[in-house]
Design a protein around this nucleic acid. Structure first.
Lengths: 237, 237
DNA sequence: CATTTTCTCCATCTAAAGATTTAGATAAAA
DNA sequence: TTTTATCTAAATCTTTAGATGGAGAAAATG
């Protein structure tokens, strides 16, 4: 194959799977390739992390349904090490949210165990060359979830959780709050809205009561957490 | 081709491109296929939205560098209509952030104008069958951006160049700041860290100087914008 | 029309925030 | 050993912030 000329040395691979037979099967399969060499197996996430720290492999093939620490968290942990090691998920499950979470925490590929072995090698090739490997079907599932996530991300924040106290604010109070969100003092707000500082204080006190907080910073934090977006631009031309 | 048997009627397509020649070229190309029929062209985003509302096409081929409203916003607007219409981006630009933003707001495909026409038809086929079409190269770029985005906690993407003044904070100052981020007063901080309030004020003043701000709220806002993450949990068991 | 909200403003007061200077104790670094 | 950085603390002072009560005017609401 063409790719054999791309590398000077074999790519070091670690296989992570709590089922020993699975890991062995994968090991043999990968070792058949000239470009790759499985240097270790790990039966759980903690062992995997230790081995990865020690050997700093080029690639990791990881099952993500394991006891103790689940694979997703394991991937996240490994990413924190800031190695060049790239991780490919190898699992039996193709749920959209699993794919999403795996890619989110830094996986570079996602292959199903039901797929033919050529797919796995293709994944190794692609990922070792710095690309992402996500078969079309899985890619579609990822985006299903991703786009649903982005769409409901804001709505779910506002009306899903608890009551959004921001709704009780009047227009003027929202204007004041939006200025506080920019780091303004009461004096600043008064200047920008052409009202007196005492008026600002009145508004602010009303805001505090409505948002059930006791301080400016808390009000600002509440607004940020609830995804507050100023309705009217208050800037002076 | 096999796909001709999948549909009873031709899929209605609208082409959006501010360059008339481009739109025409695409139109002819698409009309060569039995399965698709371009029913309208649009030269800008507003016209496009009107036409889409009126005709509710199956597919939209959209250029995303247009005057007035840009294509990304246009896609977002169209998504709000909640139609079955699926949108494919057709553009000359392959920047990672463009791909990311387009997919984020709901695009179902992304094709470069430099790609061969077969790619475009493939995209139409895939997307009309309910899948996502994103060529491998673009898919990799998307995930580059996506994973970077998730790692940095959504922050410091555009202004990554700017210095992050948070790095100058000492451990103790970070602890103080993290408590301020929870809405604590100085008295609260003093109580939680078992130090006097005057010490808290000293730390806070140092924080202000380092972050180049003048107030608690501004410091908190700066930290949030830079994606500040407390290193040590300060909570009392 | 009467009522209620909203927005405006003032006075007064207490509490908290912030600026500035000085300084002791440690621990690491030079 | 001297220097430097960090954490701690105090005194003093000025400026904001926040609480409370009242009140007038405009606008929306019933």
């Amino acid at each position: 194959m063409r790719r054999t000329i791309d590398f000077k040395r074999k790519q070091k691979v670690i296989v992570v799977d709590d089922k020993y037979e699975h890991a062995s099967g994968v090991r043999e399969l990968v070792n058949l390739e000239n470009d790759y060499e499985v240097i270790a197996n790990a039966g759980n996430a903690n062992v995997a992390i230790s081995l990865i720290k020690k050997y700093q492999p080029d690639l990791v093939l990881m099952d993500i349904n394991m006891p103790e620490m689940d694979g997703i968290n394991a991937i996240a942990e490994i990413q924190k090490l800031n190695l060049k090691t790239r991780i490919i998920v190898l699992t039996a499950y193709d749920d959209a949210d699993l794919i999403y979470r795996a890619m989110k925490v830094g996986a570079c590929g996602y292959v199903l165990k039901t797929m033919v072995s050529a797919q796995l090698i293709k994944a190794l090739d692609e990922v070792s060359m710095g690309r992402i490997y996500l078969p079309n079907v899985l890619c579609s599932k990822f985006f299903e979830y991703f786009q649903e996530f982005e769409r409901n991300g804001q709505k779910a924040m506002e009306d899903d959780n608890e009551e959004n106290l921001l709704h009780y604010l009047t227009n003027r109070e929202e204007e004041v709050l939006s200025l506080l969100l920019e780091g303004s003092t009461y004096k600043d707000v008064a200047r920008e809205l052409f009202i007196s500082e005492t008026t600002v204080k009145t508004h602010v006190n009303n805001i505090f009561q409505k948002l059930q907080v006791k301080e400016k910073t808390q009000a600002v934090l509440y607004a940020i957490n609830k995804g507050f977006k100023p309705k009217k631009k208050v800037g002076v031309a």
